[in-house]
Amino acid sequence: MYELKNVTKSYATSRRTVKALDDVTLTIPRGQMVAIQGPTGGGKSTLLQMLGALERPSTGSVSLGDNDLSTMPDSRLGGIRAKEIGFVFQGFNLIPTLTAQENVETALEPLGLTSAERRSRAATALASVGLADRGAHRPSELSGGQQQRVAIARALVKEPEVLLADEPTGSLDEATRDDIMDLLETSWRDRGLTLIIVTHDSAVAKRAQRRLHIKQGKVTEK
């Protein structure tokens, strides 16, 4: 379960200080599917980075289960990200020189598994997203939808508690968008994940159990 208490995040620019999150207090129960919507620059990505242990709040606290993400040292935050949080990005963020199989394996690298275990789990994860026969392909040899499937396999292969998706369908056509959303929803349901999706797309947001709206750093229920 996520718990955010009076979270503020400010960025200092050369001219002024920008408040990306403004006194956000929020609880997200374990296993919930949440959509976050809002205008560009409203603070969606900052909130997602806070939840993903990529940023610390300027003030306030963020906790995931028993872990206080706002005070942990970087090394421990890295450990939390490695074990408990999966990321899916709008631009897929696959490593272009590695194959699909190897890209999925990168998520298992911090866990200290043997290479055989890594290969086996990555192959299973690829099969679960329908790309069992694409393991040897590099990202440039895959379609956008297939690349996002590889990215989802990479996020799920370590069996995280939380899956954070930043505009996961933003670069895809409608048909592919629906396929990807079906895949994410199925994974969420089957694995008991906490799934948090940042999206501009209302069709995507409507599939969530809970919808949040963020504007000028303020979060409201929708």
């Binding site: 890295g78 990200r81 990321f87 990005f89 963020n93 490593i95 911090p110 996020a155």
Partner: peptide
């Protein structure tokens, strides 16, 4: 930058 940022996001340590 994007590559290393992604790897850090999925838990790779600085040392690695």
């Amino acid at each position: 930058t994007r590559e290393f940022g992604t790897l850090k996001a999925i838990g790779w340590s600085n040392r690695r």
